Every structure is written in C-alpha cells, then in structure tokens.
Amino acid sequence: MAWLIVLLIVLGLVLIWFAASFKVLQEYERGVTFRFGRLRPIRQPGVQIVFLGIDTMVRVDLRIVTLTIPPQDVITKDNVPARVNAVVLFQVTDPVRSVMGVENHAVATSQMAQTTLRSVVGRADLDTLLAHRADLNEDLARNINAQTEPWGVQVKVVEIKDVEIPQAMQRAMAREAEAERERRAKIINAHGELQASEELGQAAEILSRNPASLQLRYLQTLLELGADHNSTVVFPLPMDIIGPFLNKIPQWLDKQAATGSLPTAGSVPAPAAAPASPPVAVPVPVPEGSYS
C-alpha cells in the first residue's frame, strides 16, 4: 500500500513536471534553447516542449524596438557646447547571435549609440548640426549598424530629436539671423529701385513721343488728388509749359514802364506830414484864501 502511494506521488510529480515543460511562443518571438549547456535548434512560434531542469530557453523578440538615447553633452567642431538626444530604432535579425554574441543586446546597442552620437556630433559644426540633420542621421545609423551587425542586431533608423545650445549662443544666432534678413531686405529694395528706374525710363520715353499723353497723365493725377478731398493741392508744372510765360514777363514790365502805367521811384509822392495837435489847457485847482 505504501509503494502505491509513493508511485502515485511520483506520477503526479512527473505530470506536473511534464505540464510545466510546455511553453508557448508568440508569432513575433523565437526561442534559443540550450540543453545541458549545448545550443539546440531555434524554436519556432507555437507550443514547444522545454524540459524543466534539462533545457533552458531564451525568448528573443523580433519586433522593432524604440530606444531613447539620453541627452549627451557634446562639443561641436567649432567649439560650441550643446546637449543632444536622439532615438534609435533597431531590430533583431539573428536570434542566435543576439544571445551568443552579446550578453544584453539592448543595453549594448544603447551604449554604442551614445558613444557614436558624441563622436559623430563632435566632428560636425553647429550649422551642420542644425541644418543638415539628415546627413548626420544617416552617418549615425551607418556607424552604429557597423558595430551591432555582428550581434545580429540591425539599426533601422537614427533620428536626432533635440539640440540644446546656451542662451548666449541663441541670442547671437538671433542677431545673425536678423542681420541676414536686413541684408536681404536691402538687396531686394535695391533691385526694386533698379527695376522701377528702368520702368520709369521706358515710361518717360513713351510719354515724350506724344505731349498729349503727358497732359492726360496730369489730368488723371488731379482726378486722383480730388478724390481725397484735400484742402491744399501742390501740383508741379513742367518748365516747357510755363517757360514761355516767364520769358514774356520782362517784356511786359518794360512795356508798362514805357507807357507810364507802372509807378517809378521818383514819381511816388512823399507822405504828407501829420498836422500838429493844438495845445490843451489843463485846469489847476487853487486853494481858498490864497487871493490877495
């Protein structure tokens, strides 16, 4: 009877051990199995038997992993301090090498990405870091992938997320950008003046061919000024219009002087002297008792 109880206990333990040997692998997982320390063929997704105490299985995730690189203090090629962080997307392509080649492929990839980020950014100047991130991203991905490929890890994408620079450098860059905008504005204004002068020259040449067109232009200008209800209108007149009238003014003055219509300096009568005013008697009071 005792041996029957022992047998039942042993059978129960065997059943529990056998039930615990069943493992389920997801579709995105692969199992790297060792039996008594020896590498076994890779396990595929589904139900797999891993004998407890005999076999050891390491699950390897084949999905793309997002790895955030913490901010790194770097000095660019032009000696500008900056803090740069990035994100790395990598995927395990060979589960066996990811287990056999490195202890922890995620940690190793993270450390390699940090050192490569500092190295690549240190070889570039600040303008390249801010304006040509795509080239730096490709360089980072290529360098990191060259280090992680023996581990069965492929780096898909490396993107620089943020670049922090000192406040003094930001103010200097703002002043530089403002000066550059002012330079462009002056150049554009100069080009506009040049084109306007050329157009005005052509317009003047066309108007000079027909004097009536110039008169129509004057009338149109007066119409535009009258629409604003201004109290004072300053309107220029060309010399070719008022020139003949100005030339006739000396002749008219000479003619008037010859005919005596204009007064001369000797013919102007002197102003009459004002008549003297008569004396005014002022009464003086006399005190009483002063008569003798």
Score class of each variant (00 low, 15 high):
Asn104Cys: 03
Lys156Asp: 07
Ile42Gly: 00
Leu25Gly: 04
Leu216Glu: 13
Gln91Met: 10
Ala106Lys: 05
Val80His: 06
Ser231Gln: 14
Ala258Met: 11
Asp78Ala: 05
Thr264Gln: 13
Ile242Arg: 01
Arg38Phe: 07
Ile241Pro: 00
Arg43Asp: 08
Ser213Ala: 13
Thr93Tyr: 04
Val24Arg: 09
Met100Thr: 06
Arg97Ser: 08
Pro263Glu: 05
Tyr218Ala: 11
Asp78Thr: 01
Thr93Lys: 11
Leu207Tyr: 08
Asn79Cys: 00
Ala185Gly: 07
Met57Ile: 15
Val120Met: 12
Gln26Ser: 08
Ala2Asn: 07
Pro236Val: 05
Glu198Met: 11
Gln202Tyr: 12
Glu205Lys: 07
Val50Ile: 15
Asp240Tyr: 13
Val121Glu: 10
Leu194Gly: 08
Trp17Thr: 06
Gln251Asn: 08
Gln195Gly: 06
Ala82Lys: 03
Val102Cys: 00
Lys255Tyr: 08
Met1Ala: 14
Leu117Ala: 01
Asp240Lys: 05
Arg184Ile: 08
Ala179Ile: 12
Val155Asn: 02
Arg142Ser: 11
Asn143Gly: 01
Phe235Thr: 01
Val120Ala: 12
Arg175Leu: 14
Gly53Thr: 07
Ala274Asp: 07
Leu129Pro: 03
Ile242Asn: 01
Leu246Trp: 02
Gly101Gln: 03
Thr259Pro: 00
Met239His: 11
Val47Ser: 05
Ala203Thr: 12
Pro236Met: 06
Lys248Asp: 13
Glu193Ile: 01
Ile54Glu: 11
Glu193Thr: 01
Val286Tyr: 11
Ser213Tyr: 07
Leu126Pro: 06
Val10Cys: 13
Tyr218Gly: 02
Ile187Leu: 14
Arg59Gly: 06
Pro238Cys: 01
Asn189Gln: 15
Leu222Glu: 11
Ala265Gln: 08
Val88Trp: 03
Gln154Leu: 04
Gln215Asn: 05
Val84Glu: 04
Ala20Gln: 15
Ala2Cys: 02
Val84Asn: 05
Gln170Glu: 14
Ser119Glu: 14
Ala179Arg: 14
Leu214Lys: 10
Val268Ile: 15
Ala106Leu: 10
Lys23Leu: 06
Leu7Tyr: 07
Gln167Asn: 07
Ser98Glu: 03
Ile49Asn: 02
Ala196Arg: 15
Gly226Trp: 06
Leu89Tyr: 15
Thr76Met: 07
Pro263Ile: 08
Ala196Gly: 05
